[in-house]
């Protein structure tokens, strides 16, 4: 995984490899995530607009909640928590 073109994230507590330069949203979709957050009535939601407008792709990044995953680029060691791990 350390061939220079990839980084490792910790997603919901598990290591996940992603291409450098991709956004967190792209990395999650490429690893098969469809549900990023849980809506106020408990529905599964994931990215829609891809450009920071809809706020549907919110995840917790390095402990900070409600981060738009489509606006953040992956960084080595970044901790990402989706609704699956979100107990708050």
């Amino acid at each position: 995984m350390s061939d220079g073109s990839r980084v490792t994230l910790i997603v919901d507590g598990n290591a996940m490899s992603a291409s450098k330069g991709t956004t967190v949203a792209a990395a999650l979709i490429n690893s098969g995530f469809a549900m990023f957050r849980s809506s106020v009535s408990g529905e599964a939601r994931g990215p829609v607009c891809g450009m920071g407008v809809c706020y549907e792709c919110r995840v917790t990044i390095d402990g900070v909640r409600h981060q738009r995953s489509c606006t953040r680029t992956v960084v080595e060691g970044m901790r990402v928590d989706t609704a699956k791990a979100d107990v708050g």
Binding site: A18, T23, A25, A26, I29
Partner: peptide
């Protein structure tokens, strides 16, 4: 398109 450009 945006997601594709971002690596999806």
């Amino acid at each position: 398109q945006a997601l594709y450009k971002a690596g999806v």
